[in-house]
């Protein structure tokens, strides 16, 4: 039997073109096309715990958009001093390629002579992926956020200091800090400044709505500082001026009786129309009466001829 396909060269050529198209061939994953990125960072969190985080990605060398997370990779986190490694913990990368380890506030760290904590994250490598390692050194900074209201002036005060092995507090200087207010979807920047002699303060702008209870969450962040890394401090305070509606709207249409204006409008409209009808009918009676008066006169008939 002869195939009908030969009768349709146009469609055949399209199918053939699709079959030989390089994009139509299933791609093979070839790791030689990728290089890996191993980012290590630390964040001192609101509760003074410390987050150690590694982002492990495979990036295509030619296509920047092609980024693959390396998941289920075991990452070891160390505190190091003089080439001696102390294991802090291990964590596996998630489906997004992120491994996290949270160390509690009372975690003891070994520090060097200058007071730096030296941290290391390591991936030991597999047959397919080579070993990766990242180092960090940060000083442990204590950041306090104080919110005070004196004579209706709301003031945000930030104090920052380091504590040495003897327990002596040393105020820090030249550290940039940004303060935000938490909004429904994102953070709203309200102030940017620099800590000097361990302190920075500013007057809180007025008229933030806050949540329905009138609470505001204020967050101060030291972002990627060379010496101290990332530090976040946060507090919630009843400074919001959430305006409750004075009177809850009632849907008048659900009530038993309609709003008065509705009765008024309807009555006016109906009266207007029906009075006109009555007037018209009255006129018809007058016309009839006029006709009755004429009835004594001879009527004119139109004869069809």
């Amino acid at each position: 039997m002869k195939s009908n396909l030969y009768n349709h060269p146009f469609f055949i050529s399209i199918i053939v073109a699709l079959l030989v198209n390089i994009n139509g061939i299933a791609q093979q994953s070839d790791l030689s096309n990728y290089r890996t990125r191993f980012d290590f960072k630390t964040v001192k969190q609101v509760d003074n715990s410390r987050l150690l985080e590694v982002t492990f990605m495979a990036l295509n060398k030619t296509d920047r958009k092609d980024q693959l997370p390396v998941y289920e990779a075991e990452i070891q986190f160390f505190n190091i001093l003089n080439d001696e490694e102390m294991l802090l913990g291990t964590s596996k990368t998630s489906n997004e390629g992120i491994a996290q380890l949270i160390l509690p506030e009372n975690q003891k760290y070994r520090t060097d002579g200058e007071g730096y904590i030296n941290l290391r994250a390591r991936f030991n490598g597999t047959a397919a992926l080579s070993e990766e390692e990242g180092d960090l050194m940060v000083k442990d900074l204590h950041l306090d956020l104080n919110l005070t209201e004196i004579d209706s002036v709301k003031t945000v005060t930030l104090t920052a200091f380091t504590v040495d092995s003897l327990g002596v507090k040393t105020p820090v200087s030249d550290v940039d800090i940004i303060t935000y207010v938490k909004a429904m979807l994102s953070k709203m920047n309200i102030d940017e400044g620099t800590i000097s002699d361990g302190e920075y303060s500013f007057t809180m702008p007025q008229n933030f709505a806050g949540n329905p209870q009138g609470n505001l969450t204020i967050t101060s962040i030291i972002d990627d500082n060379d010496e101290f890394g990332n530090i976040i401090q946060e507090k919630t305070v009843h400074w919001g001026t959430f305006n409750k509606p004075l009177k809850q709207d009632k849907n008048m249409l659900w009530t038993k009786a309609a709003p008065i204006w509705m009765y008024v409008v309807l009555t006016i409209l109906l009266l207007g129309v029906w009075i006109n009808y009555i007037y018209t009918i009255a006129n018809l009676f007058i016309i009839k009466k006029e006709g009755d008066n004429l009835s004594s006169e001879p009527k004119k008939n139109y004869t069809v001829k």
Binding site: N283, L284, I286, I287, K288, E290, G291, L294, S295, K299
Partner: peptide, 16 residues
């Protein structure tokens, strides 16, 4: 209704 097409009746009917 006894409409006799008088000018009065015509006028009244027209106005109505």
């Amino acid at each position: 209704i006894n409409f006799q097409d008088t000018p009065d009746q015509r006028k009244r009917l027209h106005n109505t």
